[in-house]
């Protein structure tokens, strides 16, 4: 359950103030499938970063599962990110010198899980995301689709209730993009809240709820009754 009220985010650009977010009010229930669309610079990524606790609003209220997460300390916010949020980026952000298996393992290491259990979890996850034959490949040796699947596997290995995807198909071709979307939707169907920022109308239309942004404000927010 994500509750945003009056969220403002202002950046200083030289002597100019950029209102990246200008009073955002949104409520997203758990298990929703939301797409956020809007022109470039409308504040989509900024909003996603605030939801994911990578950034904090200058004013406004953000409650995640009923608690005021903007008031948390840096360490506590990191903990919330680890437990509740899975990030998927346009450019994958895999660590180039680590293999697919090692990249997937990173959240488990941060969480302090024992090596034996880590190994088990990584193997399971590789299997689940159909990456078992790529486990020892480094990112440079994988296709865009495989890289994004690896990144999604990494985001999901601690089974967070929410996935935040910022242009997840922006760097991959159409066919692989469809595969990635199918994967994300499968996660949604098993109960994960899915929030996708995209420029792709077709992809945006697939969501159950469409939020449109412009100049840091929500200009429309319509929910499909059901799908």
């Amino acid at each position: 359950m994500i509750y945003l009220s009056g969220i403002m985010r202002v950046f200083q650009m030289g002597d100019q103030m950029v209102h990246a977010l200008n009073g955002i009010n949104i409520e997203i229930a758990s298990g929703e499938y939301v797409s956020i669309m809007g022109p470039s610079g409308s504040g989509k990524s900024t909003l996603l970063n605030i939801i994911g606790l990578l950034d904090n609003p200058d004013s406004g209220q953000y409650e995640l599962d009923g608690s005021n997460v903007t008031a948390l300390s840096e360490v506590e916010q990191a903990h919330v990110r680890r437990k509740k949020i899975g990030f998927v980026f346009q450019s994958f952000h895999l660590v180039p010198r680590l293999t697919a298996a090692e990249n997937i393992e990173l959240p488990l290491i941060l969480e302090g899980i024992e090596p034996a259990r880590r190994k088990l979890l990584v193997e399971e996850t590789l299997l689940k995301f159909d990456l078992q034959d790529r486990s020892q490949h480094r990112p440079a040796e994988m296709s865009g689709g495989q890289r994004q699947r690896t990144a999604i596997a990494r985001a999901m290995i601690l089974q967070p209730p929410t996935i935040l995807a910022d242009e997840p198909t922006g760097n991959i071709d159409h066919r692989n993009g469809a595969e990635v979307i199918a994967l994300l939707e499968k996660l949604h169907q098993s109960g994960t809240t899915l929030i996708i920022v995209t420029h792709d109308r077709e992809l945006g239309a697939r969501a159950n709820r469409h939020i449109a942004m412009r100049d840091g404000e929500v200009v429309s927010d319509d929910k499909k009754a059901s799908r």
Binding site: E74, V75, A78, R81, H93, P107, L110
Partner: peptide
Amino acid sequence: TSEIGLLKAIGAPSAN
């Protein structure tokens, strides 16, 4: 730098 950003995004506190 971007790797450090990623580690933070997947939940590493600054101390890590």
